[in-house]
Design a protein around this nucleic acid. Structure first.
Lengths: 210, 210
DNA sequence: CGGCCCATTGACAGGCATCAAGTCCGGTGG
DNA sequence: CCACCGGACTTGATGCCTGTCAATGGGCCG
């Protein structure tokens, strides 16, 4: 734990969470806002049929669990190792009001948390598994940390499937197809190389059956 | 236009919008918050392929276009005739700050606007057209205005289709099936009668193929 | 009354889910 | 260091739901 900033009566410490660890549960009271410093977090909900849906992925600099309702609307789990800052609700809200007077920045932060949820809706309303995968990859490519000549990509395919409303088998086949097309490369399971970004975006906008 | 309340330098007038009229466009600067008084509004986005997706339905008492970002994230159109109040952005934000001091109510209003978007994600991640339709109907049944022995339901099937990521044909067939099952009744195209709510909810939770 | 849009119905094909089996990889314990 | 084990990924075969195309019917408005 490392102290990064200190104000009167307020100390921000960086905490860590291991792979699979839960940051907060859907339905729990919104007591803290989590500000991610590094790593990837998945937000998910369990439907009434018991099916798990990943509703959002979050990355460094994202703030999640913003108290726009009394209880957290989704559960948050670390996909990889994560470091974060936990802001008590009251302090976060006071900061928001101050921010509103100054530049309105934190008001936009509220919109930012909702953004991946919104984009997921657009994605899974789209035709074709290949298009969904390609669009997903382009949308997160800029948020992934560099790793050698590629990107660090520690997201299990089952999570991608749960996010895109597909089965793991279909995700696997679609990734394979993108590999065969020379668009991407996956040497190790947690490293992604985008070889041809423009063709990836082309695939993202293609209709069913190419 | 009718004056409903009057504060210093602030007059709230009720405006009207006809069927199909646009309240604001995606990408326009967030200058006003719309507070619905009656009627139904659809929020929609045009994907890069030019396909139109309905991302939310809004009803009386909902507040839409809340400035959590600089520009509106979706376009808003009246599905039926609508009456609403248009709050200038600054006044709405000031009211929110005041509300936060008092009870935090308007902070929850922000969450309320995101709710239908969130629920749509859950819905279209679900298997089966019938389950989507059924879940959609249950989710909005409590927001529809009574109309004789049924509910006023002036939503075109093409809008339902665009909301549930289905084709109009599939929506039509699913509604027909619910009708044949005796779960719902649709005498005129803008009136819905729910005959068996428990079985409707049952269908909403069923897997593919019943 | 005519035209247009929406809803309806049918036939058909295709993409994805499902089921099943095999492979790879990381972690654990001897 | 190596053998073992479990979970995730991979690959194949099959069925079916839903998209697509096409034609008809019906209601609303001019």
């Amino acid at each position: 734990m490392l102290i990064v900033s200190q104000r009167a009566f307020a100390i921000d410490v960086i905490k860590d969470a291991g792979c699979g660890e839960t940051l907060f549960w859907e339905g729990d009271p919104c007591t803290h806002v989590i500000e991610l410093r590094s790593g990837i977090v998945r937000g998910f909900n369990i439907s009434e049929e018991g099916e798990r849906q990943v509703t959002a992925f979050f990355f460094a600099c994202d703030q999640i669990g913003i108290p726009v309702c009394t209880f957290y609307r989704y559960s948050a789990e670390a996909v990889s190792g994560v470091s974060y800052i936990s802001h008590p609700r009251e302090r976060w809200c006071d900061a928001m009001i101050e921010s509103y007077r100054r530049d309105g920045h934190l008001l936009r932060t509220i919109g930012a948390e909702q953004d991946p949820v919104f984009r997921r809706g657009m994605l899974i309303g789209r035709n074709g598994a290949l298009a969904r995968i390609a669009a997903f990859l382009t949308s997160i490519a800029d948020r992934l940390e560099p790793d050698g000549d590629g990107l660090r990509f520690p997201v299990p395919q089952r999570d991608i499937a749960a996010y895109l409303a597909l089965t793991p088998e279909t995700v696997c086949r679609s990734l394979k197809r993108l590999r065969e097309l020379g668009v991407i490369e996956i040497r190790s399971h947690d490293r992604l190389i985008i070889r041809d970004r423009s063709r990836l975006e082309l695939a993202a906008h293609s209709q069913v059956g190419d």
